[in-house]
Amino acid sequence: MPGTASIGRSPIMFRKVFALMDSDGHGPISFQEFQAAHDRIFKAMDANKDGQITEDEMQAFMRGTTRSGP
């Protein structure tokens, strides 16, 4: 997926992503924080809210063109 690999190469982007995942702000990311972040990402990608992510939904999310579903 274009864009995802670049997060690891950008120290600023990495710090932003890490900070967003570290919801309690204490430094390390717990398993619960990690799961919660990925849950939010899944829900954001699932544009039609059917509990599944299609390739089109993922591409739209990565391009920033996700549309709200029903």
Rank of each mutant, 00 (worst) to 15 (best):
P2R: 15
I53M: 09
F14C: 14
M45V: 13
R63N: 08
S30F: 04
D24N: 03
M62Q: 00
I53Y: 08
M13Q: 12
S6E: 15
Q32A: 09
K49M: 02
G3D: 10
G64A: 00
V17E: 07
Q59P: 01
P11C: 13
M13Y: 06
F61S: 01
P11Y: 08
R63K: 13
D22T: 00
P2E: 10
G64E: 05
L20E: 11
Q32H: 11
K49Q: 14
T66W: 02
F34P: 12
T66N: 11
A36C: 04
Q52P: 06
M21R: 10
R15D: 15
M21W: 08
G51D: 04
G27N: 08
F14Y: 14
D46I: 04
I41F: 10
T54D: 04
F61H: 07
T54K: 00
D56T: 03
A60I: 02
G27M: 09
I29C: 06
D50Q: 00
D24H: 05
M45F: 01
A47Y: 01
A19N: 13
H26D: 15
S10Y: 02
F18M: 07
A5S: 07
K49C: 07
S23F: 09
F18S: 06
M1K: 11
Q59T: 04
Q52F: 09
R15C: 05
I53E: 03
M13L: 14
H26V: 12
M62W: 01
T54G: 07
F31W: 05
F14V: 11
D24G: 00
Q32I: 05
D39T: 14
I53V: 13
S30M: 06
